[in-house]
Design a protein around this nucleic acid. Structure first.
Lengths: 194, 194, 194, 194
DNA sequence: AATGAATGAGTATTCATTCAT
DNA sequence: TATGAATGAATACTCATTCAT
């Protein structure tokens, strides 16, 4: 039991170290030895928990993605009105990107890279289902534009990644006002205009 | 002149090879030797044109970014009405992402990587000036929302990257109809609503 | 007793696993972990029975060598006439190489390797004494050529290893006829010709 | 040209180093780095000449085997009488094993090991053809026993390996007299007895 | 006695970069 | 300018061995 906990701790430490190092240096400049050092284990120990570097990164991705979506949908339930539900989820996502920026940056870096297996990517997408369901409902009720989920995601959710990364780079500050404006834009882009 | 031409050819071949290999394999997994082979030159030759790998990647980034913005603004002029100007630029950008997808994918992959220098990134951003100017004008005229350029960019331009990458992954098809819908969403998100 | 029995079982399992793995993969490419797995014990358990890998291999060698010579001399007794005695021993050895080919292959592989200690090798040779005694007797009686034991061994016994290995490789088949021919050659090479 | 020679020199130095180190320590305890050091090149240089460690060992084997058979048949021609031809070849082989003992030991160590590819082994065997042809002739003329080449080889040639290794181990000395005795035994074992 | 987790030292191999030509 | 050979430093990964339980 105690020993199981220790194992879990080590695995978590490895994943945490991977996130931090990949965020700072990129996948290509993140040697296993550094990950090991940062997680306070021997390099060989990594291979008790992960098959190889690729697997470590994929599993890290899946784990972070799960954390992200869990957070996003934690307080949401399917009976909420569409607009309220969307606003809730959007704000949770925005909040996650701001407070868990290590995790969010890691996901952003994974997004357009061949660093992640296609299967792991699919695995990550599956968790978004509640949002897709909400959109379907919204379309049926004539509240959400009758357009592809990809378009809805591209315009209402994805911009948050760009904003978060810009903020991380110090290019601008995402304060309360701007968050509100961002939400307005997100909602404008997908709601049906009268 | 002939000799200079030859040089430019080699430099271009190297940049082309870099784009293709990075697109297919990622920064990690793109060794200089492969770039050299694909460009039909010796590894040593790369160092006649670029200081090192970092420099090769950064210059490739800058070059592609320039191509991208040149294309975007090629038919635009500052006297156009705001909405018409925006639509023009937006469509040129969308078009670029679709027909020059090798280049567009490379830029997308560069977006969130520590692989690109901050200075090269700034250099890339500078070229966007005409769009920023257009937005300033739009805000002054009460046509564009009075919000940060980052927000405008995040909601009206950046989604195109996500859509292009999704298409490349075969997840969905960006046809004429959807491009129109995309434009609607982009414009909705930044225009001032009456 | 029960507990001691169990120990011997484990030791035997380890030795068996060592033989099999070394036969199939060679000394290099036979990690302790694989040996442990095949013997159904933990890697750490090996070190309760053997000092280290070197020791495991050497003890395996000695054990197999003992088995080999025990088999060779089991039905022999020192009062037999020389030729009859030699024929008996030769045939037992040949038989061993054919039916216990796992063991025989292992010994063959040990023959020319620096993997085996010189002391272990000596230990292995000691068991051949009855054959050497027989040869001495044969020389005294003018039946066996008055030449070094090494020569006698090289020509009358050692060829069996080559034949067995060739058969294992599928290069040729050692059937009854050929075994008889082999014996003829062996005896021709050491007997005194009139 | 000079540069080609240098390349050949390096390749040879690598092969020489491989032989020496494998002889002394075995394949499993011969790291590439040591081979490189002994050959006075960088570890990376090995990979310009050989695909990997396996390839290095296989090519070394083939090279040494070729040297061995070249030496064996150098002074032989197919018109010699059978017995004279065999004696010539046998003595060349014996001589090779004595003066080129580094090479001979290496071959001996390769003999019963999965260290060498089966294809490389076949390649090595092909070179023995002149001896096999001689034996065929001998059988036709009723001089050589009508038995398999494997048996002839096992009894007339292979024992030399055992004798050479025994001498290297210091167990006994193979002087002129004993060499003569060895030849007698070899010839006795394959010639047709009247 | 037995183990599975843990590890440090090592190993094959790669790669960005340089150098002699 | 151009190169192919060469390399030192790194890197992912392995393995014999140990240790806490």
């Amino acid at each position: 039991m105690a020993t199981l906990q220790k194992s879990i701790d080590k695995r978590n430490a490895l994943i945490k170290a991977t996130i931090e190092l990949v965020n700072n240096n990129g996948f290509h400049a993140t040697p296993m030895s550094k990950i090991a050092k940062m997680a306070n284990v021997s390099p060989a120990t990594i291979y008790l928990y992960f098959e190889n570097k690729q697997d470590l990164v994929n599993q890290t991705y899946i784990e972070v993605k799960a954390k992200y979506t869990n957070y996003a949908f934690e307080t949401y339930n399917e009976n909420m009105p569409v607009e309220q539900g969307f606003e809730l989820i959007w704000k949770r996502i925005a909040h996650f990107k701001l407070i868990e920026c290590e995790n969010a940056m890691f996901l952003a870096q994974c997004d357009n890279t061949p660093m992640i297996d296609e299967t792991s990517r699919q695995e990550g997408i599956r968790h978004l289902q509640p949002l897709l369901d909400l959109w379907r409902r919204g379309r049926n009720e004539g509240i959400i534009k009758p357009i592809s989920d990809f378009l809805l995601y591209a315009y209402s959710i994805n911009p948050l990644s760009f904003l978060m990364m810009s903020e991380k780079r110090g290019a601008f500050k995402l304060d309360k006002t701007q968050l509100k404006e961002a939400y307005e834009s997100a909602w404008s882009s997908i709601k049906v205009c009268e």
